[in-house]
Amino acid sequence: MQDNQHPRSLVLSMSCPDRGGIVAAITGFIADSGGSITETAHFVDRWTERSFMRASFSGSALASRETLADRFAVIAEQFDMDWHLYDAEQRCRVLLAVSKQGHVLNNLLHRWSIGSLPIDIVGVVSNHPDMRSLTEWYKLPYHYLPVTPGDKAAQERQILELFASTGADLLALARYMQILSADACETLAGRAINIHHSFLPGFKGAKPYHQAHERGVKIIGATAHFVTTDLDEGPIIEQGVERVDHTMGPDELAKIGHDLESVVFTRAVRWFAEHRIFPSGSRTVVLRS
Rank of each mutant, 00 (worst) to 15 (best):
Met131Pro: 00
Thr187Ile: 08
Asn194Thr: 05
Ala55Ser: 15
Arg288Lys: 14
Arg71Gly: 01
Phe278Met: 02
Thr247Gln: 09
Ile114Gln: 05
Cys185Leu: 04
Glu136Thr: 14
Gln239Gly: 06
Phe72His: 08
Asp45Val: 01
Val104Gly: 06
Val217His: 07
Pro149Asn: 07
Arg50Tyr: 09
Arg111Pro: 06
Trp271Gln: 08
Glu238Arg: 13
Gln239Cys: 03
Ala182His: 14
Leu96Met: 13
Ile179Arg: 10
Gly20Val: 09
Thr228Trp: 05
Val98Asn: 00
Thr148His: 12
Asp259Pro: 00
Val122Ser: 11
Asp3Ala: 15
Gln5Glu: 13
Ser133Ile: 09
Ala268Ile: 00
Ala31Thr: 13
Gly123Tyr: 01
Thr247Asp: 09
Ile237Asp: 03
Arg111Gln: 07
Asp230Gln: 15
Glu186Thr: 15
Gln78Tyr: 05
Ser113Cys: 03
Gly35Ile: 08
Gln101Arg: 14
Ala224Lys: 06
Ile159Arg: 11
Pro146Leu: 02
Phe79Ser: 02
Val125Cys: 14
Thr67Met: 06
Ser15Trp: 04
Leu12Asn: 06
Met177Lys: 10
Pro279Ile: 09
Tyr138Gln: 01
Leu10Ile: 02
Leu96Tyr: 11
Gly34His: 01
His225Thr: 02
Ser33Trp: 10
Thr223Asp: 05
Ser198Met: 10
Lys152Ala: 13
Lys100Asn: 10
Leu85Trp: 07
His143Thr: 02
Met14Ala: 13
Ile256Gln: 12
Gln78Val: 08
Val125Thr: 08
Ser13His: 10
Val263Thr: 15
Ile256Pro: 02
Arg215Pro: 08
Phe29Gln: 06
Ala273Glu: 06
Ala192Gln: 13
Lys218Leu: 01
Val147Ser: 04
Asp151Asn: 14
Ser116Ala: 10
His196Cys: 01
Ile219Arg: 15
Ala192Trp: 01
Thr266Gln: 11
Glu77Pro: 00
Ser282Asp: 14
Ser13Cys: 12
Val125Trp: 02
Phe199Asn: 04
Val94Glu: 07
Val44Met: 04
Arg93Ser: 01
Asp80Thr: 12
Pro17Arg: 10
Ser282Val: 12
Pro129Lys: 04
Tyr138Asp: 06
His110Trp: 12
Ala268Ser: 08
Glu77Ser: 14
Gly20Asp: 05
His42Pro: 01
Thr187Cys: 05
Ser33Gln: 13
Ser64Asp: 14
Glu214Asp: 15
Leu200Lys: 10
Val124Thr: 12
Phe272His: 15
Thr228Gln: 05
Thr229Glu: 12
Asp130Gly: 09
Thr223Cys: 03
Pro141Glu: 03
Glu261His: 11
Pro7Ser: 11
Glu261Pro: 05
